[in-house]
Design a protein around this nucleic acid. Structure first.
Lengths: 341, 341
DNA sequence: CTGTTAGCGCTTTCAC
DNA sequence: GTGAAAGCGCTAACAG
């Protein structure tokens, strides 16, 4: 295979000046044309665009942002990408930004609020137009930086705490409550809970609290717990289910911290010949696609992650200036009956 | 409307100059200190840092990048976030970038190469240090822009085509071949193929071609196909499996375009009482976590998406200048026997 | 070790 | 409609 000969890899050094010279116009005219802004004679535009094409000119947005003091960047901070819910939020963000000339800059904290602080500081140095961040759990320094940045800040996923500026999400506490209430109504009485580490997942904790409230109102409670170390996963859900099934108290329903865990529970039941929901009811949270495709659709609570991402962008751009009042947008949730509970 | 005179809520714009004045030093000294570069007296540093803290100064990276002609941004282009493999690649990218002061700027093409062209153009205008892009399937204009940008370009996932600069991934064709060979060795003879739309997924096509090669070498072939419209999904896998099971030719193995589809196949079998692998063997591709947690672990080919992301960054930063020769990094794959084939 | 002086490439008045 | 000139905030020489 022959290597094609290439010109020395000089970074394209074409600038407005080159285009201006080549087209015989002023730099500001080139600038106006590149941004479709201000009045320009059609004939001039043609001439300039030709020079642009001929040279392969790509405007330098770094310089543009400096000059206009407007970066057209949107910072997005999520804890992880392993948990499918966050990619889904990002898709919503992308969809909403599509067509605008804003670029999302995405960062992952790994559920570490100290790292989050570093990340937010770094993001802020790009002078983004807005920051969308998952959750309310920040260090005081992060909170202060976001608060004082002056730009629009959206705290996503959750609306159970007062936001810095805007909150977009659902009430996890109420979702938990609804879950408990639903299962009680369906006649279940002996509940188990299979969860994962709460330290990193405040929302799972809120749901748990909601579930307990609902059960308490019915003078019931959770008879057995199995909490996995580390993050939620199908494997952990399987193990915790096995553990709950092995313990003495006989359960008629297991509530899971989320669908990943619940799918693991379904797999355990399928493998062990436990019939759902007659022998054991299984109930998740999130309404992931995978749950709907199981041999029996998973009973769960649907949240709308895509909508959260999209709405966050919409709200952030609704008003460029941060108003005096904070706002909260509830994207809602919905019990999905399924067939496992 | 009332004419209200209100001071515009100006973003507190502390600049190097302010810090320099306040600390009684020159601007460049502040700059050196903020970047931990060059020699600085400890006493001076203290004084400057105090001013920084007092004012809440955050350096403006836009200005910094313009001045140093070095953006510290890495463009990352993936087709989707719905398919879990891409978030996994992004995690690898993040992991590799962590600790450096480079920020990934992520864009999603939705498998649309025209949109990809627009995205790449936009990315290039940020003068990124490198671009990591999934696949080889670009418009001529995209190819040209990437090629002439002069920066390091990594084409990820796939190494079955000559790259612009660097390719990091595995040979999907060889993976397909290995799959076919493996199944033939295990004694299967009557194959079905359940796939999704190839138009958007060149790599699935490559694997298919490899499978056919292997079967042909054993004087075998694929007896029945079921191709879903649209992207791969568990649901589509289920449907295509049902379709293949309903057709007259009796199959002893179904090869799926990937694990999502194969998991759908497993669900169909579980629901229909088809025993795997005795009644029907099921074989996927990717080695997703979910496959390992099924009641029976899914037989599949493991690819390493995290490694692809990480390696891509490492290779891109190995040499800042693009060398004359293209390079290809094979991250490999591995047959995972599982229990469904 | 530290300060001064030019820009980086573009946008933005503000004349013309 | 268009151009000249003045920055945007920072970094990079280069003296001191």
């Amino acid at each position: 295979m022959q290597q094609k000969q290439r010109l020395p890899a000089r970074k394209s050094k074409v600038t407005v000046k080159d285009i201006a010279l080549r087209a015989g116009v002023g730099e500001s005219t080139v600038s106006r044309i590149m941004r479709n802004k201000g009045p320009v004679a059609e004939e001039t535009r043609q001439r300039v665009m030709e020079a642009v094409r001929a040279t392969g000119y790509v405007p330098n947005r770094i310089a543009g942002s400096l000059a206009s003091l407007d970066s057209h960047l949107v910072g997005v901070v999520v804890p992880s990408l392993s948990n499918i819910v966050f990619p889904e939020v990002l898709q919503g963000v992308h969809a909403a930004l599509h067509g605008s000339d804003y670029q999302p800059v995405i960062s992952i904290t790994g559920y570490d609020i100290d790292l989050e602080e570093t990340i937010v500081r770094g993001l802020l140095s790009w002078k983004p137009a807005a920051i969308l961040i998952a959750g309310f759990d920040h260090t005081p320094a992060t909170h202060r930086m976001l608060s004082e940045s002056g730009i629009r800040i959206v705290e996503m996923m959750d609306i159970d705490s007062p936001p810095i500026d805007i909150a977009v999400g659902m009430s996890h506490r109420r979702a938990g409550y609804a879950t408990g209430q639903y299962l009680v109504e369906r006649g279940y009485r002996r509940f188990g809970y299979a969860g994962h580490d709460w330290k990193a997942d405040r929302r799972a904790r809120l749901r748990y609290d909601g579930i307990c409230d609902a059960l308490r109102n019915a003078e019931l409670g959770i008879a057995a717990h199995a909490i996995a170390e580390g993050p939620s996963s199908v494997g952990a859900g399987r193990e915790m289910t096995a553990r709950l099934c092995a313990q003495p108290a006989k359960l008629d329903a297991i509530i899971y911290s989320n669908d990943d865990m619940a799918v693991g529970g379904v797999f355990h039941c399928l493998g062990a010949g436990i019939r759902m929901p007659d022998d054991l009811a299984v109930f998740g949270f999130n309404g992931l696609d995978i749950g709907r495709e199981l041999p029996q659709p998973l009973s769960t609570v649907r949240s709308n992650r895509f909508l959260i991402g999209r709405t966050s962008v919409e709200k952030a751009f609704e008003t460029p200036e941060r108003p005096q009042t904070r706002s909260i947008v509830d994207t809602g949730f919905e019990i999905f009956p399924g067939a496992t509970a």
